[in-house]
Design a protein around this nucleic acid. Structure first.
Lengths: 245, 245
DNA sequence: CGCTTGATTGATTTGAGTCAATCCCAGTGG
DNA sequence: CCACTGGGATTGACTCAAATCAATCAAGCG
């Protein structure tokens, strides 16, 4: 993308943004949107692997991914990381700062990424006069909690096979929601990141991708994924409910 | 507890409740508390193993444990459950309903339990005029998110030994915060529940308790736990930050 | 006092991790 | 334009932590 194109894109208001139906503005009226727009800090574009915030940093805003992708993670003292979530365009991150006004985990970019900042104190004030905004924030926070719960079920009770299938289905669903193909897409994260998210070893990810491919369920080439048999993939996940809401 | 005692306790207002410093009312002024108190549905006392809500139930309130204990959990179709959290007196649960106004997980009691209900629509209205309440709710939600994140790190990256040590330390810390001993307490949940929370087998829980006991770190007798060497326990958890805030 | 349910203990198995080579591609520089 | 190189990805051999299977054991309880 050229500098000119980038600059143009970055000026886009929430109302004109193609992601608004997925993002914080969802469900707000025109007037509400105009008010909200005033306060949004329009971004911020960074390379891959740059850290947006880390534990101890002051929490002053929620963030919304515009292009690219972000991972949030915690680390053990020994260095191993647990990825808490991947955040695709239109998704919010940064909620880990709500408890104490300090962030508790790391957020870093998976690739070239641009994102908006939604200052917390401004949102808080707007909540007084905009019930719709309040409800939308509750919805987003609730979604985050439920996503974490699904992730807990995955890490605690699913086999490596089931984990990888769940992961592919989750990514597929999210691409679909953004208007992209649900069956053919490019993974924005490395094998290492997938492994850290699923709580398994990188080698296991490789082996399982191969096994899925050998059984004709998917076609994998590096980061390019083609789901050949969606139903088979879904059958591998024998767990309970999940929904994007 | 006799019926008379129970009835008396149940009438206690938030302001008079010994748990208010841990619970939703934390940080509110007298006037705010009086207003809040009007809306709180005072409880609700149940036996062990009774289900408070389950997936699909309409979400209409947050709940605060007064006495006893509650677990929230998800299940796989095959029946295995993943416990998402244990909730002790003064702690809030029910946030899983925020996304869609339907609950997404199960909540059931560990023992004889009483709890208050905090109707969501009333809280929402109060948020308009009580910034302190808004902030306290954000704090609680943020705490829940961070607790889930710590749990994800535990399930994804810690060994069975580390998990059990983390669990004991977490329970110890929470008892201490409630004014009880940090080193001698009675676990409110079964071995099975501990196993489901930690993502390991019941037999493993038993073996690890024995191993901790053999190495002189703790003394375990059924549900009675005595921590003999707190420092050793803490050294077993080689992971990153965690704080009760 | 037997019965039921939860907890412990032991023997054995196994899914996934670890260690150790390659392999393969993207990016670099000649 | 192509050889070189470094880091992610794959593959294979081997190991091991924890699961599973299978008895007891202990403690409430009707």
């Amino acid at each position: 993308m050229s500098q000119a194109q980038l600059a143009k894109q970055l000026k886009v208001s929430c109302e004109a943004c193609s992601l608004s139906e997925l993002c914080l503005p969802r469900g707000l009226t025109h007037d509400e949107l105009v008010k909200l727009d005033e306060y949004i800090e329009r971004p911020r574009s960074t390379d891959a692997n740059s850290i947006i915030y880390q534990p101890g940093d002051k929490f002053h805003a929620f963030y919304a991914v515009r292009t690219g992708g972000v991972k949030t993670y915690l680390t053990k003292k020994t260095g191993e990381q647990q990825i808490l979530g991947f955040h695709l365009p239109g998704e919010i991150f940064g909620l880990d700062g709500m408890e104490s006004s300090k962030h508790r985990c790391y957020a870093s970019t998976l690739e070239n990424t641009s994102y908006c900042a939604l200052p917390y104190d401004k949102l808080d004030n707007l909540c007084e006069v905009m019930p719709d905004l309040r409800h939308q924030i509750c919805h987003l926070v609730g979604h985050e909690l439920n996503a974490d719960h699904t992730h807990l079920l995955l890490l605690g009770q699913q086999t490596a096979h089931e984990r990888l299938a769940s992961f592919l289905l989750s990514i597929s669903k999210r691409f679909k929601r953004r208007g992209f193909s649900a069956t053919s897409f490019i993974l924005p994260m490395s094998r290492h990141d997938i492994a850290c998210y699923l709580g398994i070893a990188v080698e296991t990810v490789s082996r399982l991708f191969k096994s899925l491919q050998d059984s004709g369920v998917v076609q994998i080439n590096r980061k390019q994924v083609d789901i050949l048999d969606m139903e088979a993939l879904q059958n591998m996940v024998a767990n309970c409910e999940e929904d994007e809401g």
